[in-house]
Design a protein around this nucleic acid. Structure first.
Lengths: 116, 116
DNA sequence: TGTTATATATAAGTAACTTTAATATACTAT
DNA sequence: ATAGTATATTAAAGTTACTTATATATAACA
């Protein structure tokens, strides 16, 4: 199982977190780390050291709110998007799409129209 | 013209530089910055502050060699890949492809086989 | 009893970047 | 003449989002 170097993906983690919050409703942090691993076959690691600063910053920015619930006798923190967070997520995902397009233009110059 | 946030692409710059060196033979630094801007419609900026540390490090690692030439009465430094650099480039591009695939899995869950 | 999975959080340290500045020639426009 | 833009290379201070390490705690499994 080949792991992608964190240098490559670390800048995308915030967008990934936003996207998962949007798709998978109120989630707790641990679940987010597992989902990323699951979706990417372990190629991208969302560590706690990366995740919690991202979540706390999003909360500060009013893009995310937290609710708490009890699970197995322990308090669990659930994160979800605010309306503002939804808007931020949409624009972040659009940015990520443009990024992917630009990367593809660089690494696969044969694709696309070659009228130049 | 929408610019992609540098946080998103900065980790990919080394791979981008390697790819351009591979495709466009001996090139000087300034030309690399313009090519990236050209290919990505200005969405990705390869600044000198990012470029030269990357080139110097690749040179240290024996992935890149320099030759000099005179252009307009000034010495110009041309960078090109060594055989080792070619190998590094191939594996870096494969890594970037896997990265793009992982991102697509996250942002476009509808694509691909949905047997799960 | 030890290990793995679940679950959250903080903090020191790093490294690749951004920003800024310095230097210099050639060309274009006013 | 002079200012601005394009070409061309480099160094260095500063930032910041991350990595790595650590702490804490319950539940399940072997």
């Amino acid at each position: 199982m080949k792991v992608i170097s964190n240098q490559l993906y670390s800048g995308s983690l915030k967008t990934i977190v936003l996207k998962l919050l949007k798709e998978e409703g109120p989630v707790h942090g641990y679940a987010l780390t597992r989902r990323v691993e699951e979706i990417t076959d372990g190629k991208i690691k969302l560590t706690y050291g990366a995740l919690y600063p991202i979540l706390h910053k999003l909360e500060q920015e009013k893009a995310v709110v937290t609710t708490t619930g009890i699970h197995n006798n322990r308090t669990r923190v659930y994160y979800s998007l605010t309306p503002k967070g939804e808007t931020v997520t949409v624009s972040k995902i659009n940015e990520l799409r443009e990024f992917i397009e630009s990367l593809q233009k660089i690494i696969e110059p044969q694709t696309g129209l070659n009228y130049a």
